[in-house]
Amino acid sequence: MNTALRVILLAGLMHSTAVVAEVELPAMNYYSSIASTELFTAIKTHPAFARLDKELYGSALQVRVTHSLQPTAGGKATGFVSAILTGSTLGLIPAVSNNNLSLVYEIKVHGKTAATFTYQRTFTRAFNIWAKDETYGLGKDGLEWAKSTATQFAADAANDPRVLELKREHDFYFPAAAP
């Protein structure tokens, strides 16, 4: 590879890195149907979502997280047997569930979806029915995975052409005030 080409490639890399680092998306309102605080914290860690806020009720832009937790086909049978065992031992034997957890992240503009990011995973979970659940019914692994999807969503959205086009339009009408 000749030097000139190498310089061009390096310049290109530096340029793209700089673009990614510079992206700060407009302020957006945030809503989640599950693990609201945990997901909010994870998303906001990404520089692109530094201006995410739970109380921007009037914002045209919104990050909306919804979830569904459905038993898998095998999970229904497992859950039935497990419920009988757990119930008949008054909860001494832990209950077992096998669920498909789906998290959908939407960026909405005045309620209209501009971009959707979906993450899915199946979990098997054993839990004591008397223990206090602080994982929103997801289990420890499920909650950790949910948080990882928030991080993944932030990275995916920050580089998504639909989101970047939205930022461009926003910057045209509402340019950031000079410091």
Binding site: A27, N29, D53, E55, L56, Y57, G58, S59, A60, Y173, F174
Partner: peptide, 9 residues
């Protein structure tokens, strides 16, 4: 202005 977070309103 409008609600908190609104722009152009």
């Amino acid at each position: 202005g409008g609600l908190k977070g609104s722009e152009g309103i």
